[in-house]
Amino acid sequence: MFEGAIIGQYVPGESMVHRLDPRTKLILTIIMMTVVFMASSGWGLALSVGVIFFLIWLTGIPLSIYLRGIRSFRILIIITFGFQLFLVPGEPLLQWNFIHISREGLTLGGLMALRLVVVLLLAQFLTFTTSPMALIDGIEKLLSPLNKVGVPAHEMAMVMSIALRFIPIFFMEADRIIRAQVSRGADFESGNVITRLKPLTSIIAPLFIKAFQRADDLALAMEARGYQGGEGRTRLREIRLRRLDLLFLSTGLMVALGIRLIEVYV
């Protein structure tokens, strides 16, 4: 019934990258993304793509799994390439009726498509090696200094963990509701976008009502177990920065700086 959901992307493993603190991986991803987006020369781009492939190799997850993920975005990649190819003016390479392809368009199209692939690879690097729960812990820890200015980092993390816990349940519930509606003659698969939208209310509304009933039970259960918010709460698995994390972070920063320097001075 569902179109190839990608839930549970996490690929458990024992690699060095798997063992890193989620914050390290988040920061590394940000560093690498910045390097790729700032790359202004072929050299810089080639070097940063090289570094990303090295990181991917360190995860110990076969490249084919990464490529499978990229494949589901192929239409988006083609659109990204096409936009630049056909719309950027410049020195003509091919001119046929209203179709105009320029050298600049070809270069930019390639660059943008490559950027997109790199962004997708980095997204997978992060989610393949970090369980969603660990990722949320990492985000919470990174945001916790903002607690002082009134950002409810703990509450947000709690909201996200509850959500993760309930995704599989709602998934099954949605499946059941869709089957029930189809058996009563609901049609989700024909007609244009607008006519397909309407019957969706019959899925969303009951799902929502059920969610609300569950929320009250859940709150009661949480309070019965003594939940009182973030203050003084301990966790089963503490995340902490180790020597390996510092090594990765400092190397990542140095490599990023190195690539920038090579770009500026070479």
């Binding site: 909201v159 959500a163 816990r165 995704i167 709602f170 929502f208 949480m222």
Partner: peptide, 13 residues
């Protein structure tokens, strides 16, 4: 707590 729970379930949805 109810608000947190509701927000969590809306996020899941």
């Amino acid at each position: 707590t109810t608000k947190i729970a509701r927000a969590g379930l809306i996020a899941a949805l």
